[in-house]
Design a protein around this nucleic acid. Structure first.
Length: 509
RNA sequence: GGGCCGUUAGCUCAGUCGGUAGAGCACCGGACUUUUAAUCCGGGUGUCCUGGGUUCGAUUCCCAGACGGCUCACCA
C-alpha cells in the first residue's frame, strides 16, 4: 500500500507505540523511514557541508538567460516544499532560510539508483543537494541535482501548499509549522529582530550602556501591575517576576552609570488580549542630566531612525489606514486633550465632583477611592486615547497616577511625564525622574494607603530604593518603550501574537 | 471573568430541516524527461472537540465542559 517494492503495509504490531493511532499519512512515512534504513541510508544525518544558499544563487545568476547553463556547481541544504514528478524527471522546491530554489532531478542526472531514491523523498524532508545551476526553458533558476543526501526524514505531512495553515490555534501552538508554511511569520520575526538591533545600535551610538537587572525581584516595582509570584526554596522567600526594571535602572544612575538601558522581558499577571501577553518586551533607558523635554526630542529621533532603517520609510499603512511617523509629532497636554473631548475646560484646579459629573455624563465608570488626577486620566484613556491615530506626545500626567515621576516645575498637581500614543495605543511612557527622596517616600506611602484600601496594583514601598535616592541621584530622564507594540505597527499586525514567536496559550486538553 | 462566534479527513473548507458525511490540496496506485497550485486515470483515508440528556436513532436538537477567535473589563 505504501511501498513501491510490494512489501506489506505496516501492521499495528510494527508501529512504534508512540505512533499508534496516527493517520495513514504518518504510518506511510514511518514505513518509508524503515525502508531508507533497510537500504543502508541513515535518514537523520549529522550535518552537511553546504557552500551556497538560495538567495546568493538567485542573486548571482539573476542575468542567466532562459535555457542557459551557468556551469557553476552549488551545494544547498533545506526543506523540500513541493514535488512535481514527471516520470523520468522530477522538479522540487528547496527552501532554506533565505528563500526557495527549484531543483530538477532526473534519471540522466542522478542515474537509475539515485533517481529511484530521490523519488522516495517526501514533501517536508530535509535534504542536502549538489548540482549545477541553470535557468529552465520556462525561465526558472534551477539546480540540476547530481547528488543528494537525506538529512532528516519528515514523519508528518505539512499543511496544504495553497491555503497554508490558517487555524490560529494551530498556528500558535505549533509555531514551528507556522514558520515553515507561512512566510509572514518569518518576515514579522525579521522586522522584530531588526528593530531591536537598530534600537541597540542607536542607543550604543549615543553613549548608552546596556545593563541587566534582576528578573526575580523581592519587591516588584516600577509599574502599577499585578506580579507573578514564585518561591526561592533555599532562602524560604517569595520572589516576584519583575513587572518593570525601572527601580534597578535608576539605582544604576545613582551608581554613576549616567546613561543605561535594558531591553528585556517584563511579566504582568493580567488578562491576555490582542495587545497583551503575560510576558512582553520593553526597552527602558535612563539618562542623567536631562529632563522630559529632551526625551521628547530624543524619542522622535530614535523612533524615526529605527523605523527608517527597518521599513525604509516613516509613512506606511497600518490596519488599512495611513500612518505617518515623521517628526515633529504633535505635543499636547493631557488636560487640553480631555478639555477638547468633553467640550469644557479641565485643569489642575477642576474639582473632583465636577470631573465625576463629566464622567457620569459620558458614561465612564469610576471607582470610589479615585481622586481628581485618576479620574482625569480615566477620562483621557476612555475618551481620547483610542482616537489618537497619528503619533502624539501627551504631556503632563497627574501626580496621582505617576508615583515615580518628578512633580511638574509649574504645577504641583502634575508631573513632568509624557506618553507617546500611536494608532490609539500607548507605545512609550517617559518622565523627568523623581529624585527627591522625601517626595518619593511620600508617594510610596500614598501608594501603600491605596494598597491597604485594596488596590493590589499599587506600589509596595521599596526602602532600599529610597535609601539609594538619599545618597543622591542626579536629575535624569527615563523612558520605556513597548517593543512588541512598536513591532505590531511595523508589521501591520492586529494581534500581539503575530509578533511574539510563542505567545501564551492555555494547555492543550 | 462577562457577552458573541467557532471546533467536521493531514491542511483549507462544504454539508447533514435527526437516518454515522463530501470537495480541493496532501496521500496511495498507474502514465509522463522543462514543471512550478504540473497534468491525466483510479482510490476517501473520519472519535464530525469532550461528557451527559432527548430520541428507535445524535455529527446535527438541548445542557454542561474544554480549547480558540472577537469583544468588554484590567493593563503596556
Amino acid at each position: 500500500m505504501f511501498d513501491r517494492k510490494g512489501n506489506e503495509p505496516m501492521g499495528d504490531e510494527d508501529i512504534p507505540p508512540a505512533f499508534v493511532g496516527e493517520s495513514d499519512l504518518v504510518r506511510g512515512r514511518l514505513e518509508k523511514l524503515r525502508l531508507w534504513r533497510e537500504r543502508g541510508v541513515e535518514p537523520y544525518g549529522l550535518g552537511f557541508s553546504r557552500g551556497d544558499n538560495t538567495a546568493e544563487i538567485k542573486e548571482r545568476f539573476a542575468s542567466l538567460a532562459d535555457g542557459e547553463e551557468s556551469g557553476y556547481r552549488a551545494s544547498l541544504a533545506g526543506r523540500l516544499m513541493a514535488l512535481r514528478r514527471h516520470g523520468k524527471a522530477c522538479f522540487a522546491d528547496l527552501e532554506d532560510r533565505e528563500g526557495k530554489l527549484q531543483l530538477m532531478a532526473s534519471l540522466d542526472s542522478l542515474g537509475e539508483e539515485g533517481y529511484t531514491l530521490f523519488q522516495d523523498l517526501d514533501i517536508g524532508d530535509i535534504v542536502g543537494v549538489e548540482g549545477e545551476v541553470f535557468r529552465s526553458r520556462r525561465g526558472e533558476l534551477t539546480l540540476r541535482v547530481f547528488s543528494f543526501t537525506l538529512l532528516s526524514k519528515s514523519l508528518r505531512p505539512l499543511p496544504e501548499k495553497w491555503h497554508g495553515l490558517k487555524d490560529v490555534e494551530l498556528r500558535y501552538r505549533q509555531r514551528y509549522l507556522d514558520m515553515i508554511v507561512n512566510p509572514q511569520v518569518r518576515e514579522n520575526l525579521l522586522v522584530r529582530v531588526k528593530t531591536i538591533q537598530a534600537l541597540r545600535r542607536f542607543l550604543d551610538g549615543h553613549g548608552f550602556i546596556e545593563v541587566e537587572t534582576p528578573m526575580l525581584q523581592p519587591i516588584p516595582g516600577g509599574a502599577t501591575a499585578r506580579p507573578f509570584v514564585t518561591y526561592h526554596q533555599a532562602l524560604g522567600q517569595n520572589l516576584y517576576l519583575r513587572i518593570a526594571p525601572e527601580l534597578y535602572l535608576k539605582r544604576c544612575i545613582v551608581g554613576g552609570l549616567e546613561k543605561v538601558y535594558e531591553i528585556n522581558r517584563n511579566f504582568r499577571n493580567e488578562g491576555i488580549s490582542y495587545k497583551h501577553n503575560p510576558e512582553f518586551t520593553m526597552l527602558e533607558f535612563y539618562w542623567a542630566y536631562v529632563d522630559y523635554l529632551a526625551l521628547m526630542d530624543f524619542l522622535e529621533e530614535m523612533v524615526s531612525a529605527v523605523v527608517g532603517e527597518v521599513k525604509g520609510a516613516l509613512s506606511f499603512p497600518y490596519q488599512g489606514r495611513d500612518l505617518d511617523l515623521t517628526p515633529p509629532w504633535r505635543r499636547v497636554t493631557m488636560s487640553r486633550l480631555v478639555s477638547e473631548a468633553v467640550g469644557c475646560e479641565i485643569s489642575s484646579g477642576t474639582p473632583e465632583r465636577e470631573l465625576r459629573a463629566i464622567a457620569a455624563e459620558r458614561e465612564v465608570p469610576l471607582e470610589e477611592g479615585w481622586g481628581p488626577g485618576k479620574i482625569a486620566t480615566e477620562l483621557f484613556e476612555k475618551l481620547v486615547e483610542p482616537n489618537l491615530w497619528e503619533p502624539t506626545l501627551v504631556m503632563d500626567y497627574p501626580r496621582e497616577v505617576s508615583p515615580l515621576a518628578r512633580a511638574h516645575r509649574n504645577d504641583p498637581f502634575l508631573t513632568e511625564r509624557f506618553e507617546l500614543i500611536v494608532a490609539g495605543r500607548e507605545i512609550a511612557n517617559a518622565f523627568s525622574e523623581l529624585i527627591d527622596p522625601l517626595d518619593q517616600r511620600e508617594r510610596f506611602e500614598e501608594q501603600a494607603r491605596q494598597r491597604e484600601r485594596g488596590d493590589e496594583e499599587a506600589h509596595v514601598v521599596d526602602y532600599d530604593y529610597l535609601r539609594a535616592l538619599e545618597y543622591g541621584m542626579p536629575p535624569a530622564g527615563g523612558l520605556g518603550l513597548g517593543i512588541d507594540r512598536l513591532v505590531m505597527l511595523l508589521t501591520d499586525s492586529h494581534s500581539i501574537r503575530e509578533v511574539i514567536l510563542f505567545p501564551h496559550l492555555r494547555p492543550e486538553s
